[in-house]
């Protein structure tokens, strides 16, 4: 049988658009199983989910399908506006998101703050490497998308910025 990558992709697309939750295909000892991720937010966000799955669209959308045992995506930050002119600052690595340099300090940035490309917006920490993330854009923070102390994924959006 041996499915090609594009065929698997096509299958995922078909199942995504359908009302099917789970799909299995077994032939000649080869097995493909595709299951939609559960939509509920998981409480213990310790295990590393696979690649970050970006939220597809707001409310009432079938959950994104996941192949095999892929863990549920990190709690998807609500993306209310579909503004395409907003810049997303994304996490460069898997780690813990900190909004301030210490528990007692003020956050580096808050909604409404003006930033420039060299402004430090947060720390992402993994294995005690403290990554002080620079904004890379100038503008205004529109929304903070992650919570202090949350485990964030590679590529996960952390801030929405309206570029100036």
């Amino acid at each position: 049988m041996t499915l090609k990558m594009h065929e698997i992709r096509e299958l995922i697309q078909l199942i995504d658009d359908s009302s099917i939750d789970e799909f299995e295909l077994e032939k000649d000892g080869e097995k493909v199983s595709i299951r939609k991720a559960k939509p509920e937010v998981i409480t213990q966000q310790v295990a590393a989910p696979a690649a970050y799955v970006p939220p597809v669209a707001p409310q009432a959308v079938p959950p994104a399908p996941a192949v095999q045992e892929t863990a549920p995506a990190a709690s998807a930050p609500a993306e209310e506006s579909t503004d395409t002119d907003l810049h997303k600052i994304v996490s460069p690595m898997v780690g813990t998101f900190y909004r301030a340099s210490s528990p007692d300090a003020d956050p580096y940035v808050s909604e409404g703050d003006t930033i420039n490309s060299k402004s430090v917006v947060c720390i992402v920490e993994a294995m005690k490497l403290m990554n002080e993330l620079e904004a890379e854009v100038s503008g205004t923070i529109v929304q903070v998308l992650a919570e202090n102390g949350q485990l964030v994924e590679y590529g996960q959006p952390l801030f929405l910025v309206k570029p100036s």
Binding site: P92, K128, L129, M130, N131, L133, E134
Partner: peptide
């Protein structure tokens, strides 16, 4: 104790 601080943007270590 070892404290490692990285400065960089989303794709590059400064």
């Amino acid at each position: 104790g070892i404290l490692t601080e990285l400065r960089g943007d989303q794709d590059k270590i400064e």
